[in-house]
Structure formats: structure tokens, C-alpha cells
Design a protein around this nucleic acid. Structure first.
Lengths: 161, 161
DNA sequence: GGATAATGCAATCGTAATAATTGCATTATG
DNA sequence: CATAATGCAATTATTACGATTGCATTATCC
């Protein structure tokens, strides 16, 4: 099954950022609605984001989820690292027998490749802050709205999700 | 199950390159031995590599697998693209309902991120040719051998795998 | 203080992509 | 013609991830 945790986490954080920006309260239930998912699943995925200080959950009635720090101080790299934990971008074939000069060293070699590629990915993500991303996605939204100009009126409700 | 096709394919191609370099014949059986895998599995994984001209398989007795072009004309990017086909590095969460300005546009936004990151990965792979990689892995091997200097003698057999 | 409403977390089941196996047809060599 | 290789289809096994359920805990609001 394809790993969609990163894209799910990005959507969650952007939704929370929008909620803060618009003055709405955000709960795992409202986030789950926007994701087409289960509130408990949302909370599970939030664990590493809370742990890394990207989000701040408050329990009890009236509680909910807020950003752990200003939106321009959270990058997509932070989100990626939080949800993927120590999972590598590529993974080496396990249990390769050391039969020859290739098989005996392929693990070390592949680790170099992986670090290289992963560094490139992280670099591409670290320049995108949540603030930038929110601005970008709202820009995309305005363009989308414009294209529907003479079509059906927008029916989107203005909620946190 | 974790996808190890890329690392498996890299090992296969490097083994074939070494075999050509050392003048050994390479079959799906010898490759499978070096991978700790099944010859049929190896042949399945070889399909896209053959299709893209990276490898050249010859049937019948005395047949086997050779590189489709010189080792300095095959990059790890070629191998990656062959085995991953159209699979994206990141995949967006499916079936997100368009409930708000985030959920309605997250797909478009995430596609931008993915293209960016994927481009970075491909760039990190395209500078590594099979020739370079083979040189590198043999260099790693020499260093490893040196470290075992006063230890047990190397027992690696000098085969194609 | 009690009802309410939120998170936290553990346990469990379902699903789908990948790994691995088997078997045989095909092909080409020697 | 025997041998030895690939090609390929069908099947099974494995496992990471998705999703659900249930409940304990915690905090707020009336």
C-alpha cells in the first residue's frame, strides 16, 4: 500500500495554519472531515508532529490543535522528518549474501546513494515554509475560482478543515 | 512490503558490469545467487531493464545477460526510471473531499512538491554512471579487504554475481 | 461538581503492493 | 537431439500501512 502519510500530514498542518489564520478552532474531527478519514487516525498521525513541536494539542472541552510555532518557522522538511521518522527514502535489499565483490559491498554503496538522494529531497523541502505553502495554496484556490467564473458558484464552506 | 526493486536492480546491473569487465558469463541463476533470490524473480525484474535497453538478454544454451550499452552510458537514473515506471516518489492522499480551500487544492499543491522533490532525486542519480559506480564499489571493496588485513583471509569467490 | 467534549493510546482487522515460487513454453546452442 | 538459457503466466506468502473501535484521561463550561 502506498504511503500517504506525508501528504496527509501536510494537509493537516496547512488546515491548522488556515484555521489559525481565519480564527477557527481545529479538532481532530474537523481535520478528519477535510481528509475523508477517521479522527483517531488523524490523532495517530499527529503523534510525531506533536513530539517534534510542530503542533500543540490541548485536551478537554474546547481543546483542539494549533501550530507549535509560527507558520514561517515550520518547513515541509520538518513535517517530512517527523512523519517518516527514521525510514529511508530507498531501502537496500535485505539478507544479501556476501558472495562476490558486488554483493559484499552493495549495502555500503547503496547507503551512499540513499543519503545523497535523501539530502536532495530534504533540501527541496526545507525552503518551503508552512506560511509560504499556505499562501501558495490560497493562490491556487483563487485561480481555480476564477476559472469557474461563469460556472456554478463556489459551494465551499469556510471552515477550518 | 517495502519496495526493494531499485536496490535489487542496481545490484543486478553492477554485477553484470563486473562480469563483463572480468570476462564472466552472467545468467539469471548466477545473479539470483548473488542476490539470495529466485532466478525467475530476477528475470521478472529484468523486464523493464531490457525494455529500456539497459540490458540485453540472449536466450538458449550459452545465453545470458549483458549490458545494453557501455557502462559509462548507463546512469542510476536510467535504472531508477526503468524499475519504478510511472510510480511517483510521494503520492497524494486519495479521495480527499473538496470541503475547504485546503482540501480543494491540496492535490495540485502536492503535485508541485512532488515534482520538485522527484527532480532533485533524479538529478542526484543521473550523475552516477554504472562505470563510476562499479569503480566506487570496487574501491569500497579494497578498503574493506585492507581492514581485514591480519584477520581471516578473504573467502569470496570470483564469480560474476 | 457534573455533563460535555476533546485528546491519547492500545488493540485489532482489512487491504493492497510486493516478494517469492512454480511450472512450462520457447528458443538457441553445442 | 540433449541441454540450458530466457519469457511469462499463475499462484501464494508476506508485510507495511490504512482504518476502525473502544475506552481512559483530561479539561472546560454551565
Amino acid at each position: 500500500m502506498i504511503d500517504v502519510r506525508f501528504s496527509t500530514a501536510v494537509q493537516m498542518v496547512l488546515s491548522i495554519a488556515l484555521a489559525e489564520h481565519d480564527g477557527f478552532r481545529c479538532t481532530s474531527q474537523t481535520l478528519a472531515d477535510g481528509l475523508g478519514a477517521n479522527p483517531s487516525f488523524v490523532r495517530t498521525l499527529m503523534v510525531p508532529l506533536n513530539r517534534d513541536g510542530l503542533l500543540l494539542s490541548t485536551k478537554g472541552k474546547g481543546g483542539g490543535i494549533r501550530l507549535g510555532r509560527p507558520s514561517d518557522k515550520i518547513t515541509l522538511r520538518d513535517i517530512y522528518c517527523a512523519v517518516t521518522e527514521d525510514k529511508k527514502l530507498f531501502v537496500a535489499r535485505p539478507d544479501v549474501p556476501a558472495r562476490c565483490r558486488i554483493s559484499a559491498n552493495i549495502g555500503d554503496f547503496f547507503q551512499i546513494i540513499t543519503q545523497d538522494a535523501e539530502g536532495a529531497v530534504l533540501h527541496s523541502l526545507e525552503n518551503r515554509t508552512v506560511a509560504d505553502s499556505l499562501k501558495k495554496i490560497l493562490q491556487i484556490d483563487r485561480r481555480r475560482q476564477a476559472k469557474l467564473s461563469s460556472g456554478a458558484p463556489a459551494k465551499l464552506i469556510r471552515t477550518a478543515t
